[in-house]
Simulated assay, not measured.
Amino acid sequence: MYGKIHEIYSSISGEGISQGIPTVFVRFAGCSLRCGKTETKQLWCDTPYALGPNQGETKPLASIIEEIEALDKDHGFQILLTGGEPLEGQNRDLSKSIAEFLFSYRTKENKPYPASRVETNGSEKITLDPYFIFTMDYKLPGSGMEDRMDLENFQILEKRHNSLDEIKFVVRDRIDFERSIEVIREQKIQTNILYSPVHGEVDAKELVEWIKIDNPPKCRLSLQIHKVLWGNQKGV
């Protein structure tokens, strides 16, 4: 079992409901989406350096597990599978194998965070598997990628009924926010909802005012604390 890995490192979770938790990040290489890029606007992806499938090193499962355990000797950190896109192509099978292995060990040994959190872009189908927790993006019009979203994922999230799953809306402008409200109503979303502003395009304080007025269920503002602490750096 092999996959393309861009980097593995330890830090704290930077956003969402797991914000601040000590975490080992496994960043896969390769993502077919190009969010935010238009004729007049730039790509907004936080990790453009991991978008290409060749922007990573081919690693076997055993090597990845060894690296995770070297960073987390006591198995006390959250494990976050991110990208790139951890559910795209061969990354999907490797993500499953990593999560299954850790879930089995941590459950047996009564360790914290047995299920690995997966940050996924919404275009790949999620699963009912208990060894995953999902942070799933829904790409709004400003991303240019909304037509790539797999709407069946909303039904899977409802079936999962996992209190730790979350849906993330990255908001570029008022049109994006209004569309998010439509999606929440159309899909009858009951999962945790995250709102994040596109840096430099919408003020977080303005987004807060929009959230206060509409007050979608189980929603929260999610800012990237790692950028507050270290700036826009890799491996932190």
Rank of each mutant, 00 (worst) to 15 (best):
Leu151Lys: 14
Phe132His: 08
Ile184Asn: 01
Glu146Lys: 11
Asp165Asn: 07
Leu151Glu: 15
Ile126Glu: 03
Ser196His: 00
Lys205Ile: 14
Asp150Ala: 06
Arg160Met: 06
Val170Cys: 15
Glu201Ile: 05
Leu207Pro: 02
Val202Cys: 07
Leu140Ser: 08
Thr120Tyr: 13
Ser123Lys: 02
Met145Phe: 00
Lys205Trp: 13
Ile184Ser: 03
Leu164Thr: 05
Glu178Ser: 13
Ser143Leu: 02
Pro197Ser: 07
Val170Pro: 12
Glu201Leu: 10
Gly142Met: 02
Leu194Ala: 07
Ile193Tyr: 03
Gly122Pro: 04
Glu209Cys: 09
Lys205Pro: 11
Met145Lys: 02
Ile156Gln: 07
Ile175Asn: 12
Tyr195Leu: 11
Ala204Asp: 01
Asn121His: 11
Val118Asp: 08
Lys205Asn: 15
Ile181Arg: 00
Arg179Gly: 07
Ser123Asn: 00
Ile175Phe: 09
Arg117Cys: 10
Ile184Gln: 01
Ser180Arg: 03
Lys205Leu: 15
Ile181Leu: 08
Thr135Tyr: 00
Tyr138Ile: 06
Val118Phe: 09
Asn162His: 12
Glu158Gln: 15
Phe134Leu: 07
Ser163Glu: 13
Gly200Asp: 02
Leu140Asn: 05
Leu194Lys: 02
Lys188Glu: 12
Glu152Thr: 12
Phe134His: 03
Val171His: 00
Phe154Gly: 03
Asp129Cys: 10
Gln155Ser: 14
Asp165Trp: 03
Arg160Ile: 06
Phe134Ile: 06
Lys159Arg: 13
Ile133Lys: 06
Ser116Arg: 03
Tyr195Lys: 07
Arg117Ala: 09
Pro197Tyr: 00
Asp176Arg: 07
Arg174Asn: 15
